[in-house]
Design a protein around this nucleic acid. Structure first.
Lengths: 205, 205
DNA sequence: TAATATACTAGAATAATATTCTAGTCAAGG
DNA sequence: CCTTGACTAGAATATTATTCTAGTATATTA
């Protein structure tokens, strides 16, 4: 199948193998618990090869994290972009979060279970930029609606807490087996509740 | 001050030194980043002494975690116990979370930043029991009010998500320097919003 | 075609760090 | 005293991340 020695065929395929193996291991047994030996075995790469592609275990994890968070954030922004209506936007946002979580279990476990963990150090900057961009995008939507009076005038950190907090918490419960509500239903209930929390005067259901 | 050799004076004082040092290190630089050597230096204990008191680094972290979470949960339950009124209860709960966080920064950083992390493995069971008890207690309050119609009939996992999610998310932002609202104000705003999300028909402000 | 450069790979060697082991020391009770 | 048991110290060991050395294959150039 694969050559015993020498350059691996295909563009970056060895690199991808390593990233995939890493995601597998990290989401399955956690960052600290997976040894480079695990990743080596799962990916079929050698120690040297792994360290050729990635500076360290930390940096490898950061790369995996960034790929995931980018995909996630992009989806949210797209979902939001298609919505003029405030209520629809909130629904779209929450819906995207919960469905993305369900369809990308491996990523989610890794991204949300261990947010701000260990390996972040090395990617701090890049992640900060991403989050900042993401925040700006999200804020644009909410500011527009605060201006229009469709959403109550609350500080941005409070709005973020009210919107993403429940999503994150549900995600956590989902993965620890403590959630009893199906995702479809959770989308409806959480959206409805968050809308009540945020809706401007005269807009509440 | 301390004897060069032999038993440390005072009841369990050496043990406490180790726990305190560990909390310090963990909350400051994270679990994986702190080496046993760090804990040894900070606590003044020897390697052997640490391993006499704790089976492993993991188990030490678990002990620290459990002490913290116990204190936190106890406070919430007490806060809730004093409240007949639904709205008051929600306010008390959120208020306790955010104030506890502010008054116990070191614990919070450790508890909330790395929830469900690594070392949990060894304490899984004990933590599961604590959380289950805690959940039951919290649920009692909400079920009573759902029954009375003062709070909307939502599944328990959704309620937990709506109440604790925003608290957790605000906490995360607070520690990563992304919160712009003062804790006092956050208590008011989040409580108000969560109340809107949960209030039974005819109870909304 | 052959020489060379580039990108990659392998696996052994090293370094860092968690854990175990051996030999104690002290305080209390008989 | 002497013995026991809780505790401590620090060296020895084991585990695991990282570095190093020596390659191999493919593309490029002459």
């Amino acid at each position: 199948m694969r050559q015993k020695k020498g350059r691996h065929t295909g563009t970056d395929s060895r690199r991808r193998d390593i990233v995939n193996a890493a995601l597998n291991c990290f989401s399955e047994i956690g960052f600290s618990e997976t040894s480079m030996e695990d990743i080596r075995r799962h990916s079929g790469a050698s120690t040297g090869s792994i360290y050729h592609h990635f500076k360290s275990k930390e940096q490898l994890a950061a790369e995996v994290y960034i790929e995931g968070i980018h995909n996630y954030q992009e989806g949210i922004i797209d979902a939001l972009a298609g919505c003029e209506d405030a209520r629809e936007g909130i629904f779209a946002l929450i819906s995207h979060h919960l469905r993305w979580m369900e369809e990308n279990k491996e990523w989610s476990r890794f991204l949300f279970q261990k947010r701000h963990s260990v390996f972040m150090a090395s990617a701090e900057e890049k992640i900060a930029v991403m989050n900042s961009e993401f925040g700006k995008n999200i804020s644009k939507f909410f500011l527009r609606h605060i201006h229009a009076g469709t959403i109550r005038a609350l500080p941005s950190d409070i709005i973020i807490s009210l919107v993403f907090g429940p999503c994150m918490e549900f995600t956590r419960q989902y993965f620890s087996g403590h959630s009893c509500t199906a995702v479809d239903e959770a989308v409806r209930q959480v959206s409805e509740a968050v809308w009540r929390a945020l809706a401007g005067n005269g807009e509440a259901v």
